[in-house]
Computed example of a mutant assay.
Amino acid sequence: MRVELSANVFTDGNFELLTRLIGYFIEARHDWIADDNETLVVMDGYFRRHAPVRAQVWSSLVRKEPTRQVWSAGRPEPPTVRVTHESLPEHVEDLSATARVVLENKGGDGDFLLAVAHVFRAERIIEAKERRWLKFVQGGGSGEVPKVVRDECADFRRVKRVVFLLDSDRWTPGEPSKHEKAVAELRAEGVHGHILRFREIENYVPNCILAAVAVPRQQRREFDERLKSLRGLVPEQRAHFDMKKGFHDSRTQAARVPDEQRQLYGSLRQTTVVALRKGFGDGLTALLLREAKAGRLKEEDFGDLGPGVCDELREILALIERIV
């Protein structure tokens, strides 16, 4: 996070807390920001008195031009945490804690977020996850996520370093998500989060990744026909298709479009509905992460899913960058 220290934190009784905080700046866990010349003068004098050996190094931390452009292009710069003498103990505790992203499925959804971070070059998020400065928290079912978010926020006193991500579970484009009321309440409490525009995380998996799904030889022809049919959907249809289960009626075991989506998919031929009967199963986000790490995925692959997709993914990354 971006941290600004006021001049009144540099007092004799705060040396241990300041040393701890400076350690976070040295390891680039957080960024120290200072634009006030008066604060810099006070800081220099303080370091010369209390840490003469380290004074020059520590003072240079706040003066040097940032060498890592961690706030990636296209995403807004996160807010600055302003620390005063009164808030220093609580702020240090909050900044030492692990940032959290609450997800419905921390395994699959977490793989998706890391894949997107690799493709959109969100190095700060990748590093934070690797160094355990950031963790994904299992929220359970979507109805449990708000409770888990509040439980995680209870660990913080000044800065709630918790965000959340939810599937929209929308049947059709523009339909209000059933989660909007709960999300509005969390936002009113100062907790940031995002509801996906598309139905679920899996709807953001590009077609090129689906083509890499391992399929037994005897099922290859059927799978290729399924993928061809998926590619034939318009973006609004692709965005709300049940990617894991397809048009499968568990009661009759037949291919069937849900009643809630009959208008959306009314233009489809029955042969297309049958071809999409099975969907693409589980494990898509794990495959997405593997291909992203290998450099076989580009921003344009997400852009092919429809207008505004890349902007939404950047918005999600910016949401996480606020807390790391």
Rank of each mutant, 00 (worst) to 15 (best):
G232T: 01
A184V: 05
A275F: 02
L319F: 06
L17D: 08
S229Y: 09
G190Y: 04
Q270R: 15
R100N: 04
I33V: 12
K245N: 14
D169A: 12
N105Q: 13
E222Q: 15
R220W: 03
L284D: 14
D31V: 06
R217Q: 10
K244E: 10
A214W: 10
A292E: 03
D167I: 03
G295T: 02
R121Q: 09
P176K: 13
I125D: 03
R131K: 15
R82M: 11
K244V: 06
R158V: 06
D304Q: 15
E4D: 03
M1K: 11
L289I: 08
Q237H: 06
H50C: 04
Q237L: 05
V9E: 03
E93W: 02
H50Y: 04
Q270S: 13
R296E: 05
S59Y: 09
H50I: 02
R296I: 00
F223T: 07
F47S: 09
L5H: 08
P89Q: 01
L113P: 08
L233H: 10
V119W: 04
K64I: 04
P89C: 00
R121S: 07
D36H: 04
E90I: 04
R54H: 11
R269V: 07
A55D: 01
R54Q: 14
E93R: 12
P78W: 06
F25I: 07
E38C: 04
A255L: 07
W71E: 08
I33N: 01
V41D: 10
A318H: 13
V159R: 12
S72T: 14
A128G: 10
H248R: 15
V83K: 06
K293Q: 14
G281K: 10
L268W: 05
R100T: 01
G139D: 07
R314S: 03
L21W: 00
E315F: 09
V163G: 05
T172P: 05
L210V: 01
E152R: 01
N14S: 10
G143F: 07
Q69Y: 15
A214K: 15
L287V: 06
K278G: 03
L5C: 04
R161C: 02
